[in-house]
Computed example of a mutant assay.
Amino acid sequence: MLQLNKIHHIAIISSDYEKSKHFYTQILGLEILQEVYREERQSYKLDLALNGDYVVELFSFPNPPKRVSRPEAAGLRHLAFEVNDIEATRAFIVSNNIEAETIRVDEYSHKRFFFISDPDDLPIEFYES
């Protein structure tokens, strides 16, 4: 059987690199590990970490096509972050002028969660630990 160790990273292509860089670093607090500009692709590649673990590659490409994400399109559904205090997390998000869904309760785990959208309308979930 194949043995996987962990998810290495998630790659995200942004339509507005600076706006997405601000969102993922200044709002979500991911730390920059490395940022490179790839001249041949006219593309930035930003490697981001959460608590020292590499988790997100943020790319820019000229004129990327839109991806359908709602309603419930096939493919990757959302990116989820575990948090300790769901109410404080939502309050922080809202204080940064980001629209947030109301806090809901997972019917199976009984944990609380809510969703927001990143600058490209990709669903981001915050899930109570």
Rank of each mutant, 00 (worst) to 15 (best):
E72M: 08
S129N: 13
E107V: 09
N84K: 11
E31K: 09
I116L: 14
Y108R: 07
Y127V: 06
E128H: 07
N5L: 09
R70L: 09
I27H: 07
I124S: 05
L28T: 04
E99D: 11
H9F: 09
A73Y: 02
S60T: 13
E87V: 14
F81W: 10
E31F: 01
Q42A: 14
D118V: 07
D121I: 06
I103N: 03
E107L: 06
A73M: 00
P71A: 00
V56E: 03
V36A: 11
I86D: 04
Q42P: 12
I103T: 02
K21R: 15
V56L: 10
L76G: 05
K111A: 09
R77S: 09
E40N: 14
S109E: 08
Q26A: 15
F126P: 05
K19I: 07
P123L: 10
H78M: 02
L76F: 12
A100M: 06
K19R: 15
L30A: 07
N97I: 09
K66Y: 06
V94R: 06
F114W: 01
V83A: 10
L50M: 11
E40A: 08
R41C: 12
N5F: 05
Y44H: 15
Y17L: 13
P62V: 15
L4I: 15
D106L: 11
L58P: 07
D47L: 10
R70C: 00
E72F: 06
V68G: 03
L30C: 12
S129V: 08
D47H: 06
A80P: 06
P64F: 01
F126W: 02
F115C: 02
V83W: 02
E101I: 01
I7N: 13
R77M: 02
P123E: 05
E87I: 13
F126G: 04
T102D: 12
E72K: 08
Y37C: 12
D106P: 06
F115P: 02
P64L: 05
L76C: 10
K6W: 09
L76W: 06
H8G: 14
K111T: 11
R104Q: 10
R77P: 04
S20H: 03
D53S: 12
N63K: 15
K6N: 15
L33W: 03
K19L: 14
